[in-house]
Amino acid sequence: MTVLHIQNLEKQSEDAIIFPAFSLEVAEGQLVAIHSTTNVRSVLLHLLIGKTVISNGEIYIHNEKLSRRKAREHLPFGISFLDEGYYERLTVREHFTFYQRLYGSAHSIDEVLSRVQLESVEHKKGRHLTFSEKKRLKLARLLIEDPDLMVLEEPDQNVDVETKRVLLKIFREQQHKQKSILVLTGNMESAITLTDQVYRLDEKGLEAFEVEEPAQSSEEETQGSDREFDQSQPIQFNKIPTKVNEKIILFDPPEIDYIESHSGQSHLYIMSESFSCVFTLAELEQRLQPYGFFRCHRSYIVNLQKVREVVTWTRNSYSLILDDQKKSEIPLSKSKMAELKGMLGLN
């Protein structure tokens, strides 16, 4: 059963294409993420809640067309915005009581309190909560409403590890109950960790982002060619060239925190800044392996020297936390976990 069906949705703003026509289906129990820029995300959200008119294309919820009028009256799905508010003077429990009455929900307050792990602060006022607790409070509103489809904008932006764990647990529980979730985010790591299916939406259209690596064979291939590469280069030149506008900047491998590939381009991250690089990820992997770099995901290479922590969210979802300023999180895919353990001498 399809819960959300977006058909040929398209948006242009004056002369610029924000996104060309795309179609997307979210089935029952499916966790989907759309990775996009803030601008694309807010346009999409406005279309979903009927703030702007859908001029081209259609959105169906449970096979019922979403009209602007209907969306404004009562949204047939749950939504949580990044900048959503809370009542500063009400306690957590009072929030819950209010939401329960407002939505006529059958969920007990204590059950939701424990699901979002706010029991210890249930008598604290909204304004005295920490950022992450507030974030969980906002999530609780959706749990009380309990819609078939939740749309979440940046659910784990700037949250602590506890909240991210809560979020992941709730996502899995919703999936078990055959409920669907659509995450809109600008953070690839969060998209990969939270959901099963990631899309990238930009002015070129909607593009599926493969989360699980296709085959192991390509891996061996690169391992083989690795040695060839070393031999074919008599003079050791180790720096990695990147391009910024017209300039070429060379980086020492140990400077690099991690490398991400998106839109067919690899990006080096150094001191929280991104530099695009002409080499493909496979080529970079070859070059950088001797320096302790590790292909931890189909679209990521990480400098193992910079890894501070390996977080296990669920049995098959992992992240690496780096030791850089931003404490960047990098996804680690399931099959690579075993490889990494081997490298660390853990098994």
Binding site: H74, F81, E84, Y103, R141
Partner: peptide
């Protein structure tokens, strides 16, 4: 001011 009205408007409450 506190960004809570949108949540109310999108809820079943008219």
């Amino acid at each position: 001011e506190k960004n809570t009205l949108r949540g109310l408007m999108l809820s079943p409450a008219t």
